[in-house]
C-alpha cells in the first residue's frame, strides 16, 4: 500500500510523543481502540485556567495511518478551547492525511480520542 507524503512525514517524525502525569488536575486522558483490533490510541491534553488546551501528547499502537492521525491531532488541538477541539471531525483528519478508504477508521479513532480526553478532563472538574 502506498502512503501519502503527509502520513509518511508524521510516521517518520511523530509530533508530541509522550505522557503527561495522569494525576495532574490540568490533564485529560483519552484512550480508545483495542489491541485485538490492531490499534490503541492514548491522547492527553493539558488545559490552562482559561480553558485552552496549551499542550497535547500521544502514544499509539497501530498502523502508520493511526500513528499519523494521532500525531496530527496533537498539533491541531493545541491552542484551541475545549469546545473548538471537540469540533474536529474525522473527515478533516482523513482529508489532511489523504487516507484511503480502508484507513478511515484511523481518523475516526483519532476523533474519538480527542472527545475522550475532553470528557476525562471535564469529569475531573465537575463539582
Amino acid at each position: 500500500m502506498a502512503y501519502s507524503d503527509k502520513v509518511l512525514d508524521h510516521y517518520e517524525n511523530p509530533r508530541n510523543v509522550g505522557t503527561f502525569e495522569n494525576d495532574d488536575e490540568a490533564v485529560g486522558t483519552g484512550m480508545v481502540g483495542a489491541p485485538a483490533c490492531g490499534d490503541v490510541m492514548r491522547l492527553q491534553i493539558k488545559v490552562n485556567d482559561q480553558g485552552i488546551i496549551e499542550d497535547a501528547c500521544f502514544k499509539t499502537y497501530g498502523c502508520g495511518s493511526a500513528i499519523a492521525s494521532s500525531s496530527l491531532v496533537t498539533e491541531w488541538v493545541k491552542g484551541k478551547t475545549l469546545d473548538d477541539a471537540a469540533q474536529i471531525k474525522n473527515s478533516q483528519i482523513a482529508e489532511e492525511l489523504a487516507l484511503p478508504p480502508v484507513k478511515i477508521h484511523c481518523s475516526v479513532l483519532a476523533e474519538d480520542a480527542i472527545k475522550a480526553a475532553i470528557s476525562d478532563y471535564k469529569a475531573k472538574h465537575q463539582g
Partner: peptide, 20 residues
C-alpha cells in the same frame, strides 16, 4: 510510541483492561 508497551512496563495486565 506504544501505549501498550508503557502499560506492560507498568505491570498492567492488558487482558484485564476494558477496551473500547
Amino acid at each position: 510510541l506504544s501505549p501498550l508497551w508503557d502499560m506492560y512496563k507498568d505491570g498492567v495486565d492488558l487482558s484485564t483492561v476494558q477496551w473500547t
